[in-house]
Design a binder for these strands. Sequence first.
DNA 1: AGCGGTAATAACGAATTCTTAACGGTGCGT
DNA 2: ACGCACCGTTAAGAATTCGTTATTACCGCT
Lengths: 224, 224
Amino acid sequence: MNPADIRILIVDDEEDIREILEHNLRKEGYQVETAENGKLAITLTRSWNPHLILMDVMMPEMDGMETTREIRVGLRNNKVIIAFLTARGEDYSQISGFESGGDDYITKPIKPRVLISRLQALLRRLDSQEEMPSNEGLRADRAKFVVFKDGQPLQLPKKEFELIDLLMSKPGHVFTRLTILNKVWGEDVVVGDRTIDVHVRKLREKLGENYIKTIKGIGYKYEP
Amino acid sequence: MNPADIRILIVDDEEDIREILEHNLRKEGYQVETAENGKLAITLTRSWNPHLILMDVMMPEMDGMETTREIRVGLRNNKVIIAFLTARGEDYSQISGFESGGDDYITKPIKPRVLISRLQALLRRLDSQEEMPSNEGLRADRAKFVVFKDGQPLQLPKKEFELIDLLMSKPGHVFTRLTILNKVWGEDVVVGDRTIDVHVRKLREKLGENYIKTIKGIGYKYEP
DNA sequence: AGCGGTAATAACGAATTCTTAACGGTGCGT
DNA sequence: ACGCACCGTTAAGAATTCGTTATTACCGCT
């Protein structure tokens, strides 16, 4: 995949580190954003949907592990790769983070050339996974409750957004009406039979007829 | 994926290391083989086709980098994940091995619990690659409610899908009409005698005549 | 209270899917 | 050759499911 199509998010509380990393990664052609704390990282992850996150383990308030967990549970489309940054001295026991969803770790001090190599190795798995949310077609932004259609932002009402977001979380996957009701409306909310249809109708009006497909007798699915 | 289905190859010239690693990985349920040099590693890789290789970087004669290159060029189905073992002191410049196809590295001394975590992280990418499109014959995808015929997706109505899905769940197995009625229509649903036949007819129309076979007096079966 | 926007429902029509019924064919035993 | 049991095929109409519109209820805001 082209570096220019890859979004990397740097999360570190030290400004120096952020700048060094950002500079080196930009030099390679990647898209780069930075966050100085876990909260910002989560927001940016939701809205910007990076392919890879470089996450400092040691941070005040919310550390890398916690941030990682938040990101993993909050994200529907759970494909982001997370690489931890650790000081060389730190004990490896920290790296239980792998069990909370981290994918690799990199020790400081960081040598730029080595970093690039590692990242390329990590990013290789993106290639094998093809289907990455790109700017074509639709993209949902959970932080802003906005859906981008061919780059154009579209403000959607809550229910409509949650519905399309659910469908888009697994492209091609068919969600039964029951599942949709449980996830979007809640476990024990009772609504009429035609409610889902009406929301689908409005989504198709706004997004176009070709994204949501009806599977009669089963439910609906999203296809790119 | 189940540990018992995963093959891990250990490549190291030191017998102690090999034994420690082998013991720990077997304890987790993995299949394990060992090789004491690069040549043996290549042979074993070709014949045994491991999912993951733990490769020592420093070895006499053929080192880990060279072995890796050999394996990468020689293998057709190039899915094997290679993790390097390096002494903590060694310089990272060694890790140009990433560019020769390595996927990760792990520093010695090795702590078993950390190792297992790392491997699980690496092996995750195997899971995400699940669906290997075997383009021959039919494949039913319950998640997408779609049947693939020679790679072409086919949308089937609910009953038809459930019927072919049932038959395909045990290729070659004969399902009696009664069993089919219970599983597809439900325990206490009463339908006419010809209902199944009609659905079989439609399936044969759409999929071809050669997949569903009639066993007179008994029922139907699917054969690939 | 009035307004703007969202959410849910009802009612009807349209489309698809399912079932049935009727008839035809095949094989087997007598 | 005949009857019987079983399956195949077709077409028609039930039954289910979905789409659409209009209407009402709701909620937050000014």
